[in-house]
Design a protein around this nucleic acid. Structure first.
Lengths: 246, 246
DNA sequence: ATTATCTATAGATCTATAGATAATGC
DNA sequence: ATTATCTATAGATCTATAGATAATGC
């Protein structure tokens, strides 16, 4: 029993089905074109403020045609969020496994770095939707919210351990975790202001996370260099699809 | 030429005008009741996703009656944002003046502390609306966005100076400012998770801002104690309306 | 035959305006 | 007379469904 995968990617794109009223330009599958347009609009105008008509217009199809690909606006959102968070969550597990034997600062540094990279390269800075009332209160975002919570817990545990070791444990673990994640998500704000995220920026932010947990200058350097080694393994195991390694 | 102030506050509240279909409960002026209800809804459901009907329902009036107090939904938003950011901006000027003679870490610490307090005590955690696409893309938020930008610049300048002095200037000033503000706005996230913001939490977050800028443990302690002195002056000059002083 | 679109439209909103009305104030 | 509400409603959306149609695939 294998169900057909709906030809996502640069496949057919040569006129199956009735032609559009305006010519097809993109090489993406129609479904991906919708997600792309929706993502851009949700981020710039907001979810509730974006109508299905606007999305369709950007894609170059009629409003009703959206419903061939998605059951409704909510499902577009759900697909978009899923696609956005999936890579991070997968990488989190790998990252934690990879640094299981290392000192915790190294693990925290690497987790932050991977996360920052994902946010920095996500299409349309889609991470902006993370904490928005519009989105979070939508039932379609339930899975997304739950997953983001797992991520938050990972940060909380790591950050708390690191802070305790360094004697900078004046904050409640829950609050500290929130702040570290907040710092990581700073890339979203930086991107939103139109600034580029360089490798150096990513490393600096990840370092900031350790400083926040009270890690001193020497330990920080150690964490950075060990993390860099792990990252090479990581990138290799993933066939270099990650650009963080310089 | 003095135009009548529309009786904001616990004044009349004794049946001028046609009675509401449901009894008045609040002691606030009708206008403030609208802002209160709208604030709560905007934060939980989002701006575009909240209808004027919902707002009116919470207030206990008919939808059309809103238009006696506000020209439209946008104007409700504008009034709400204005009311929210005003105190911070006023305090920022005072704070910077108060610490003009102090070392920059002290000034940064105090600015963060004042800002954190404002966000921590703002009704309905209204700070949540700060970076939301919904809001930011609305023309009604123009003044608000501009003001928030001034605040960001204040953080950028202070943080950059502090970071340079401490030799932790690996981040671009723009980016560093963004991260410090992001950290301060962490209180919004913490509140959103239903956790209380104690004085100790506020101080820890402000301290985190200095750590982020590379301030060492000893200098941090100095900044904290000097800032505490300034805060006493500050609170006194404002007749103790600020709760930060413990 | 299957696929991906189209046109047309029902039904449910939602915002804002017009004009009536029920209180208090003078 | 003034104020703060009410009722009623026009006009503009917006979402989603039904059914037709123009391509390719077999």
């Amino acid at each position: 029993m294998s169900f057909a995968i709906p030809v996502s990617g640069a496949s057919g794109r040569r006129g199956v089905g009735r032609p559009r009223h305006s010519a097809v330009s993109s090489t993406l599958s129609p479904r991906d074109q919708v997600l792309d347009a929706a993502g851009r609009l949700f981020v710039t105008r907001g979810f509730a403020a974006t109508s299905t008509r606007e999305i369709a217009e950007k894609v170059g199809i009629r409003q009703a045609s959206l419903y061939y690909h998605f059951a409704g606006k909510d499902e577009i959102l759900a697909a978009l969020l899923e696609r956005t968070l999936r890579p991070t969550l997968d990488q989190v597990d790998q990252t934690l496994a990879l640094t299981a034997e290392d000192p915790r600062p190294t693990a925290l540094y690497l987790l932050a770095l991977v996360d920052i990279d994902t946010l920095a390269t996500a299409p349309h800075n889609i991470g902006l939707l993370a904490g928005v009332p519009d989105i979070v209160s939508s039932p379609a975002a339930e899975a997304y919210v739950a997953s983001r919570n797992d991520l938050l817990n990972a940060y909380r545990d790591l950050a708390h351990t690191v802070a305790t070791e360094s004697g900078t444990d004046d904050l409640d673990p829950e609050d500290l975790g929130e702040l570290v994640l907040q710092l990581v998500e700073g890339v979203i704000r930086i991107r939103a202001r139109g600034r580029a995220i360089t490798t150096s920026t990513a490393r600096s932010i990840a370092s900031s996370c350790l400083r926040l947990c009270g890690v001193g200058a020497e330990d920080l350097l150690v964490a950075r260099s060990v993390a860099q080694e792990r990252l090479v393994d990581f990138a290799t195991s993933r066939e270099g699809s990650n650009e963080i390694t310089d």
